[in-house]
Amino acid sequence: MLCILNNPLEQFEIIKLLGIDAPLLPLIELPLTNLGLYLLIVLGVVISGLVISFIPARIGRDNSWLVTLESIYGFLVNLVDSQVAIAGHIYIPAIIALFSFILLCNLFGLIPYSYTVTAQFALTLGLSFTVLLGVTILGLQRHGVHFFSILVPAGTPLVLVPLLVVIEAISYLARAISLGVRLSANMISGHVLLKIISTFSWQFITGSILGVILGFLPVLFLTALYALELGVAILQAYVFVLLTASYLNDVLSLH
């Protein structure tokens, strides 16, 4: 039996689809990769999804899409309310944008033959560093120099302060990495597992007559795995914004 096992990480490769050659600026290239294409698709879906929800004349009465969006909005408002103690409402648009973007990227990645944008560390780390940088700037803007009291937990003995400042600074900065890596790692592991199982299933199905007859069994297993991945895709988007809201609360209220 011929056994060809493709590298399961191949699916995350960034491929250049279109590129603009710039001979005058040889170091600058403007390529459209599969990553960029899917980001554009997600952007288009987010915007058109919002636009479509406002099309029916009687808003909120017969529009199931708008009602769904409203309930997602309400869910996120509750999340921000429960997480951010002080003046969290003005950050709700940012939280909603993050949630809808990550959720749609995750869900698009689940469609067969598509590409998972959020499995790229470059993208998720970019997002998480942006979030941390943003909340740090907010904290500095709001509290000035007092912002650095976030590095000293209340009631620390004076002797331990230098040590704790170092530890807290590392843990604060590590949030940026953990936030992004959590999302990407979950996406990568799920898709790799799907790829491996599907490859084995394909070989089982095409390998023998028995495989053709019992081929539905691995497909069923894969379906169950798919359901799990769907849950993970939604959960990871939720976890990302939950932690963002929690970091926001930390810098706004300084513990």
């Binding site: 067969p112 490859t199 894969l222």
Partner: peptide
């Protein structure tokens, strides 16, 4: 037809009952 077809089948198998 390759292993992605199996993924497609599983996807359809999830989406329709869902």
């Amino acid at each position: 037809f390759n292993e992605e077809t199996v993924v497609l089948l599983a996807f359809i198998g999830l989406i329709i009952p869902l």
